[in-house]
Amino acid sequence: MAHRHSHGSGMLMLDTLAAHSGLRNVSPGLKTGFCVLVLLLCVGASDTVVGIFVALSMVFFMVFLGKTPMCHIVRLLKIPLLFLCVSCLVILLEVVREPLGLWQLKVGSWWLCVTSESLHRAVTLFFQAMGAVCCLYALSSSTPMPQIIEVLRRCHVPALVIELMYLIYRYLFVLLEVQRQLTVAATARLGYVGLRRSVSTAGRVSGTLLASSFRRSRVCFDAMESRGYDGKLAFLSHAPRLRPTHLLAAAAYVLALLGLIFVRKGWLCP
């Protein structure tokens, strides 16, 4: 169900959103650092209120600062929601020999139980994960991938890894387009009717895709070599500069979040 977005443009919705984001003039280093820090705090705190606070504030950032349409955010949030519900259900239900806790259901010789502890754990986990997911969305809906790669380069990630990342990012679009065309062609010829035939079609489509991408890589290499490629991809990067006001705002938010965590954990004297 998450993969109904099987066409190219819908698939990389986040990439498109990032390119149009109202926050694209904020320094990518700051955005990446800020989101990763908040993410770590949210996961580290593992607390319901902190999770809700992070989730709501990140959605607020996306809508009011990033100017991301609300309908897109809702669509994005639906993706993890289903996984989250099932996994939380697993954590909520305990399979034990004897009935215990708040609610129980006999299945054969076993009992499915909900204890207050498991309820608490499932609820905490749900909101912790929701906060973290919103934080990830805030990063990826405001920062285009090349800028994130540029940040990683400045963090001294080896040049070979950076090169691979740029190339993979570039080829994603090429292959997605080829894959889309192949799938449309196969669908138009009734290739996906019936399970047996669709398995075979899916295999053929992916086989053709890989064969053509290998062939394409050779052509690409020749083209790059003829333009003087010797193992180093050089791009002009014009990343937006860091502004003091942005830094201050980020710092204020992190301090507020830290304060909330301290209060919730009871580390501040009452």
Binding site: M1, A2, H3, S6, L160, I168, S198, R218, M224, G231
Partner: peptide
């Protein structure tokens, strides 16, 4: 040349997640 082949393989692994798959147990 291997670097391009490896990059293609990586992009391919990513694109597989967009592959229209025969529907298994209702989900793709």
């Amino acid at each position: 040349k291997a670097v391009l082949l490896l990059a293609m393989m990586g992009a391919y692994a990513f694109v597989l997640s967009a592959l229209k798959m025969p529907s298994v147990t209702g989900s793709s």
